[in-house]
């Protein structure tokens, strides 16, 4: 089994502090980490490897410093890491990112299972997994909550839908995106850290991947962010005098979310 897990480097916290005076964002010093959903994807790959053997490669696209998230993936059980990095990639949107990542698979040959987290906590788009699947013409299983069955040719999983669950079976190769329910992240031990720290990370750039530079980066991305705003934040606690009123508010909040 050749499994590839895609990891995104994201800020450790998506909390945004608003300076009360200037109303600007306060984010002094940003700590980065692997997208939490992606670590669940690594755990799923490890589960498969335990049964079927083979190799797990973690891939990230980002700045050179993103090698830290590959090492994080190695701590959780990936065998090696590939860092896809090129200044030409800066500003890539989900389409361009999917394009580059599909080129990585082309470069590696073929993967049996391509794992992604359900979504990234900074962008929340849930697009790159299906995007890579489409570019490679692989089938896609989004929002996996459990591996139900496995063999040499196919995988059966539980996937979440808006109305419940589907149990679906698909032959390899396949793209699967993983929910946090799929497994429990194990605790990392010093051994894991030491192994990850000693691992060498392979670098790949645009020319090595035979990427059409017109399709990547800010220039090649179909979408463009044209504005960023901070939603209005609460100032004062609204005090309620009766639980019934609180009940109404909770109902309204829940209804709005549906």
């Amino acid at each position: 089994m050749f499994q590839i897990v895609f990891i995104k480097q994201v800020p450790s916290s998506t909390k945004i502090k608003l300076d009360p005076v200037s109303h600007t964002l306060v984010r002094s010093g940003v700590k980065m980490q692997a997208n939490p959903y992606d670590l669940h994807a690594v755990m799923a790959a490890v589960e498969v490897k335990k049964q079927l053997g083979g190799k797990i490669v973690a891939v990230t696209m980002g700045p050179p410093s993103a090698d830290a998230v590959l090492r994080q993936a190695i701590m959780y059980g990936a065998d090696e890491g590939i860092l896809v990095s090129d200044v030409l990639f800066a500003g890539s949107d989900t389409w361009s990112t999917s394009y580059v990542l599909s080129k990585v698979i082309n470069h590696l040959g073929k993967g049996d299972i391509l794992w992604f987290g359900k979504q990234a906590i900074d962008g929340d788009t849930a697009q790159v997994g299906p995007g890579v699947a489409a570019q490679l013409s692989y089938p896609q299983l989004t929002e996996m909550t459990k591996i139900v069955d496995l063999d040499e040719v196919s995988i059966t999983v539980n996937k979440r839908t808006d109305f419940g669950y589907n149990i679906v079976k698909v032959p390899y190769p396949v793209v699967i995106t993983v929910c946090k329910e799929a497994n429990v992240l194990r605790s990392i031990a010093l051994n894991d850290w030491e192994r990850a720290t000693c691992s060498s990370i392979q670098m790949m750039n645009a020319s090595q991947l035979d990427v059409d530079v017109h399709k990547v980066g800010l220039k090649g991305s179909p979408t463009r962010v044209v504005g960023i705003a901070v939603p209005s934040v609460k100032n004062e606690t609204v005090w309620l005098d009766h639980p019934a009123r609180l009940g109404q508010i909770i109902k309204d909040l829940i209804d709005n979310e549906k």
């Binding site: 849930a126 997994g129 989004t142 839908t161 979408t223």
Partner: peptide, 23 residues
């Protein structure tokens, strides 16, 4: 932006080489 709608639109946008904004 249902679970199915997001999965289908992401795949279709990739096939169409066009932009998709989720949620």
């Amino acid at each position: 932006a249902t679970s199915f709608g997001k999965a289908v639109s992401a795949r279709a946008a990739a096939l169409l080489h066009t932009g998709l904004t989720a949620d």
